[in-house]
Write a protein that binds this DNA or RNA. Sequence first.
DNA 1: TTTGTTATTTTAACAATGCTAAGATAGCTT
DNA 2: AAGCTATCTTAGCATTGTTAAAATAACAAA
Lengths: 221, 221
Amino acid sequence: MIFTASRYTFTVSPMRESAAARPYHHGDLSRALIDAARRLLEAEGPSALSLRAVAREAGVSPAAPYHHFKDKGELLEAVADQGWDMLNQALGEARRSADNVRDKLAALGVAYVCFARDHPSLYRVMYDGSRDKEDMPAHVKLDHDSAYCQVRDTLVEAGADPADEISLELATTAAWCAAHGLAEMAAFKQFDPLKTALGSEEAFFRGVFEHMKIFAGDSDS
Amino acid sequence: MIFTASRYTFTVSPMRESAAARPYHHGDLSRALIDAARRLLEAEGPSALSLRAVAREAGVSPAAPYHHFKDKGELLEAVADQGWDMLNQALGEARRSADNVRDKLAALGVAYVCFARDHPSLYRVMYDGSRDKEDMPAHVKLDHDSAYCQVRDTLVEAGADPADEISLELATTAAWCAAHGLAEMAAFKQFDPLKTALGSEEAFFRGVFEHMKIFAGDSDS
DNA sequence: TTTGTTATTTTAACAATGCTAAGATAGCTT
DNA sequence: AAGCTATCTTAGCATTGTTAAAATAACAAA
């Protein structure tokens, strides 16, 4: 679907549900902006993601986005939200497709790192917004099927005592930190020999996770 | 020590050893620039760290830095290098002051996260440069007493088999990822209740590390 | 329909940034 | 003293985020 208005030409992605009644002049521009940002992000990486470039990609003037997002940051937040939705979904699938309970948590971890590997720019945006604030990324702790809650629930399924809240929170945080740490490291090419030695990248991820007990020593706390 | 040349006034940090024979006009400008960058970083955070601001802080013209660093990135690399030196030193101290072998690795981990907590902007710079390249941050794997090597050596001291190189690399990577992940998360205020419940921030760090065995299940590999 | 209100978009402008090319300056070498 | 070269400044360019003001188009009421 292609609109032409004044001298700007731009495309509008097909409307989803009735997400929001179609606004005034040009269809759903805020969604078009988010899509344009995602397109730019995949094509050129995070450094190319300027507000003006997004507007250009969407076919509107440099100031147009400011009527839909107060800030460049607010647009990036919207992009990040989509990323979190995708990640939550990927974790859900990994969780369902794991054979036995014992492997479920490792499967979650591998799925997490694979997501970061497959969408590196998006993953960056998902965290960059939160680094300045002192809040966790959106939807990480709040939603029912948020990534965080999925990890916590999986821990309970695997035998963690849901009554010991502190221990459960610590374990969930530990899993989260481990996955995030590996996600940020995994692309370093210093790991290439290890990956080939182990046969695949996923095997490398799994191998790292298998060693995650190191900090605990051998005793059980 | 204060120089005044043309209309720019700037300070030069006291010379260290004979790091490099004192250059031409204004003393050791490249060091002065790095110091200025560090000062700005601590005072205003990473977003305020523009090359022009650094030049301003150092009392030179906006183009002066380009005779000492080919890029903004190259200056940031130099700043990051100092950060890695500091971190390596902090890890070394933590390693020496740990009572028994068993606690050494946890002490290293806590020291790592404390460094990131105490120098958040510097820590950001230390990794930001490496995210674009696909290389690990400078000096992480190369130097003798690099942070990476210290972790690996500590693992060997704690009983890891130095002959099984793959397992040792995996374990070192696991420890590194865990520490980095926690370092990036630790500032989120969602953890405040946990920190107070456990008495201190360090206790929280230790608590997370103690749960790091989760990915391994209970069996030993 | 006409009129008015309001939401959306454009144009134009500002300050700031990274960086480069040209000239000035000062130290070193001969 | 003359020349060379490294260092620094001045000016300038393209780009960025953001704002203010003007234009445009949808809608609601008369």
